[in-house]
Design a protein around this nucleic acid. Structure first.
Lengths: 234, 234
DNA sequence: CTTGACTGACTGCCGGTCAGTCAGTAATTG
DNA sequence: CAATTACTGACTGACCGGCAGTCAGTCAAG
């Protein structure tokens, strides 16, 4: 094949971007290294010249995505003109009017096949965003809107619950089940952070009025996927 | 090889048990179907006679484990002689004196390689145990020790946070970081369920005294694993 | 004789390796 | 300055070992 030499950063970026697209289109496990290099137009060896393994490029993709998110988050967290609540709204609100960047987190293709991508992203999101949110919480304590003992650990817990329960499709909830869980998540966050009830309404846009009406016992879906056959298939 | 015919249930159980042991010893991904059948002493075809795929047997293992846990949990939940708090202690307490069965959940080998096993187990544990815990919470509400709006969804959130944050080694926390997070988890649960502070002390045995001293800002570990190389390896 | 448990050679794919090739560039020389 | 050489780091692709999954066929038991 024609031998085309490019600047290493270009090549690397090329491969990462293609891989990211393909992973989201067909899933991580369903996308072989072969597929990636065919699409980029390089040899197998080139891939392994830039990445030490297939999981390695997955990590690179997650890192890249998270670097963008963390940057945005830090910009908001460091803004001295905003109150803690305003910062929370900016970071956790679903309504990013002009700024589509942070939507990427939620917008990841919800292929069930993308367990690997989702899990890694979830873990890293919690780990890297929590310190930033914790600082905002501390500002909120100073401002008198929050009251918590251990901001970092508390945020980590809340973030983990929210992220794994309602993002990434791990539990296979229906749209309605998700809606309800997001509502309850909001209530728990407010209670735990000692914030006024309803103050995190931005997490569930357009639902400010029904905060207290979310009663009744919805059943969670039972085990997802096909039931394990108890007897051998004849 | 000698052809030995066994009762299907026996065979199936044999394969499941061997696979379970091997998965815990060497990890799911590192254990090929070859390894399993060699250990059991059957042919490849026999494996695929009982299970349609490798993920399928993983699901069977998780199902089996969870059936045991759910059974125990239901036994406790249905016991009319216990208060809600006693049931909570029995289910969530780490001190299972004579009964080693439920230890299995926590005792799963903490191989980092066992992501697949851990994730599936975590999800199913939350999904299947939450309804049972929710019933206990409702009993607790009647008894006046709890106060919550949406027991099921609340429990699911709390359970998810606790399970994913502190079990399964996903975040790579150190022993100390884990200890602290378990303490905070306890506090959050109490606050969220409207239970008296310290009433869930059984979650952190031997630490009843330091409930309020867990101050100071521990840093979470940064991104786990090797840093993604920004430049190619020369 | 029928059925259902069981066999194991075989297929196809995939992640990963490596010895070697080639492009671009710096150093050397006429 | 142009031509030649030496060098290095980007790049290649045939190849390897291993693995999940298939299937035509064998055998035991009722």
């Amino acid at each position: 094949m024609a031998r085309i030499v490019k600047a290493p950063e270009k090549r690397r970026a090329e491969i990462v971007e293609t891989a990211e697209r393909l992973f989201r289109e067909v899933g991580y496990a369903n996308c072989s290294v072969e597929t990636i290099i065919r699409e980029v137009g390089v040899a197998k060896g080139t891939f392994y010249y830039y990445f030490k393994s297939k999981p390695d490029i997955l990590e690179a993709i997650v890192d890249k995505t998270l670097r963008q998110i963390v940057e945005i988050a830090e910009g908001i967290a460091d803004d001295p003109s905003l109150t803690a609540m305003q910062k929370m709204a900016a970071l956790l609100g679903n309504s990013h009017i002009g700024n589509d960047d942070s939507l990427d987190v939620a917008e990841m293709l919800h292929l069930p096949e993308n367990r690997e991508l989702h899990e890694l992203t979830n873990v890293q999101t919690v780990l890297q965003l929590s310190p930033i949110l914790a600082r905002i919480v501390e500002q909120g304590i100073d401002e008198g809107v929050f009251e918590v003992e251990n901001p970092l650990e508390t945020i980590q817990f809340l973030f983990t619950g929210a992220q794994f329960l309602t993002e990434g499709d791990m539990f296979g909830f229906s749209r309605d089940e998700l809606r309800k869980r997001r509502l309850v998540t909001q209530a728990i966050i407010e209670k735990t952070l000692g914030a006024p009830p309803g103050s995190f309404h931005f997490m569930n846009p357009g639902r400010e009025l029904e905060q207290r009406h979310a009663q009744g016992k919805t059943q969670g879906s039972p085990a997802r996927g096909r039931a394990a056959p108890k007897a051998p298939q004849p």
